[in-house]
Design a protein around this nucleic acid. Structure first.
Length: 483
RNA sequence: GGCGGGGUAGCCAAGUGGUAAGGUCGGGGUCUGCAAAACCUCUAUUCGCGGGUUCGAUUCCCGCCCCCGCCUCCA
């Protein structure tokens, strides 16, 4: 099955083939966070979509080179550092650190590099690009000393968003600097220093100032990945103007097609509205963890809906995710137990009904999961395959028709698909002395058929986050919730 | 107004021109001291609404309604 993705540029599903002649190297750029506060889970939905994309490409044996930028200078970081009365770098440092911690919590693979906007090398690269664009008359310095892109000189501008420039309206959301610009749509590449910037400034051929947001990504992407990218991702709100501006800047410099596949994910919603800092309707990852949920539970909850569909965040959805993971955990525990049994060949108790033999080994089901992801990352379809597999193998286990070798095969299948999902729980949670003691006491109570005491101890374990189950092989103790 | 995304069971959500995956919740059952887990079973004659094409449409075409986003801070 061919790998195909929905390209925002063409608004169509396209087969994916990287530019690399060997067809294996993939250059991927993903817009990262602005570190003026903690990222919220809406931001992480985008990063999780990108993680799913990277992991699936890797499962399909592509070598992914990925860059994610860190925006550590802009209006909000400057404002924050001034309010806090500390230098800019000191203000942003803890948010950078928190961002990486959150990535780990969510099991998001690290990009190859996370360039920072204030890195002198990156600033130099941005200035070089602006100089090139200036020489080509694509940008100009306005009366306010800032440098703007002359969008009328770049006919492609607006193609990604399918916007007609003459239709652009000013929404009044940002400081109006229209008097300085030739066209209301012209965007800043270099922002001239002003009082509000305090000590934050860099020297440039156009005077002191700081880079605009868009030029950051153009410079970093070309610096670290080259002039042409295979994939560029972000949230749909980045399509215009950010990615449009990146195209204008980069192609204005190189004259080459900048990005071959544009991929954008839909928003995370809260109460039917986009989750955003400005609306105040957001949760940080830390907020959700504080409610007792684990990183993998959040990961699952944010990843289980197709990336191009809006996803409404609810606590009910978190509970559904927790239960779904519990089902997976219990299934894996059963498979592991079966796989550890001795591998002596036993006579099959009764013949499987016709067609049931294919449950003995992962075959069609195995490819079904990956085929679904090949189809524009159809995660719901892939999870459907997983849960059908779980039901069928559980049934076979119930009937005593899954031997240890088959259980091992299914565990191997799981390990492969979990390279993409990354939602495995702890294989064995260590039992504390306290829990072991209660569990042992319960075993004794059961031997004495003291059901009342047995039930009390079960409740006690539950209160401490452990579940006791009585199986034909004896009592099983399992860690529950937030693992 | 322009450009997009979405409307499928209580909730979440796949999907196909031939009659609706999966998860979760709830009901019934097997098992169990009781539970839990697992399995079986029930829960959309129906896929926003109205037309059209077709032997047949949720799936294609036309029109309409509703929700959300972007239109220069935004993942």
């Amino acid at each position: 099955m061919p790998l195909r993705f929905f390209n925002t540029y063409s608004r169509a599903l396209e087969e994916f083939h990287p530019l690399d002649p060997t067809g294996r190297e993939v250059k991927m750029y993903t817009c990262g966070p602005t570190v003026y506060s903690h990222a919220h889970i809406g931001n992480f939905r985008a990063y999780l979509f990108e993680d799913l994309l990277q992991r699936h490409l890797e499962l399909r044996e592509f070598k992914v080179h990925r860059v994610m930028n860190i925006t550590d200078v802009d209006d909000k970081t400057i404002l924050g550092s001034r309010s806090a009365g500390v230098p800019l770098a000191e203000f942003t440092a803890p948010f950078k650190q928190a961002f990486f911690e959150d990535l780990d919590t969510l099991r998001i693979e690290r990009a190859d590099s996370f360039p920072e906007a204030t890195d002198p090398r990156q600033i130099a690269a941005m200035i070089e690009m602006i100089k090139t664009l200036m020489a080509r008359d694509l940008v100009y310095q306005a009366d306010d000393k800032s440098v703007y892109y002359r969008i009328n000189k770049f006919p492609e501008y607006g193609h990604l968003a399918h916007f007609d420039l003459s239709e652009l309206r000013s929404t009044g959301r940002v400081k109006s600097d229209e008097y300085d610009k030739e066209h209301v749509g012209d965007f800043a590449l270099w922002k001239a220093w002003d009082e509000a910037d305090g000590p934050v400034k860099w020297e440039s051929p156009w005077g002191p100032g700081r880079p605009g947001w868009h030029i950051e990504c153009s410079a970093m992407a070309t610096q670290l990945l080259g002039e042409q990218l295979d994939i560029h991702c972000g949230g749909v709100d980045n399509i215009f103007p950010h990615h449009e501006a990146e195209i204008a800047q980069t192609e204005g410099c190189t004259g080459k097609k900048f990005v071959r596949y544009w991929m954008h994910c839909a928003h995370l919603m809260v109460d039917g509205q986009k989750m955003s800092k400005s609306l105040g309707n957001f949760y940080t990852l830390r907020d959700v963890l504080a409610k007792g949920y684990s990183g993998r539970e959040v990961r699952y909850a944010l990843m289980r809906v197709h990336y191009r569909a809006p996803l409404n965040f609810t606590w009910e959805g978190m509970e559904e995710s927790r239960e779904a993971l519990r089902r997976i955990d219990d299934w894996l525990a059963r498979l592991r137990a079966k796989a550890e049994e001795d591998n002596v060949q036993r006579p099959t108790p009764k013949a499987f009904a016709s067609g049931a033999s294919n449950i003995q080994r992962p075959t069609e089901e195995g490819s079904g999961f990956e085929d679904a992801l090949d189809d524009d990352l159809n995660i719901s379809g892939a999870l459907g395959v997983l849960f059908e597999t779980i039901r069928e193998t559980n049934r076979a286990l119930d009937l005593g028709m899954l031997d240890p070798n088959a259980a091992s095969s299914w565990l191997q299948w799981w390990q492969r698909i979990d390279r993409v999902l990354a939602i495995s729980g702890e294989e064995t949670a260590a039992l504390s002395a306290e829990i072991s003691a209660i569990a042992e006491a319960r075993v004794q109570a059961r031997l004495a058929k003291d059901w009342r005491k047995s039930d009390e101890l079960r409740d006690e374990l539950a209160a401490k986050g452990w579940e006791a189950r009585d199986t034909k092989d004896g009592q099983k103790i399992t860690r529950r919730d937030g693992v």
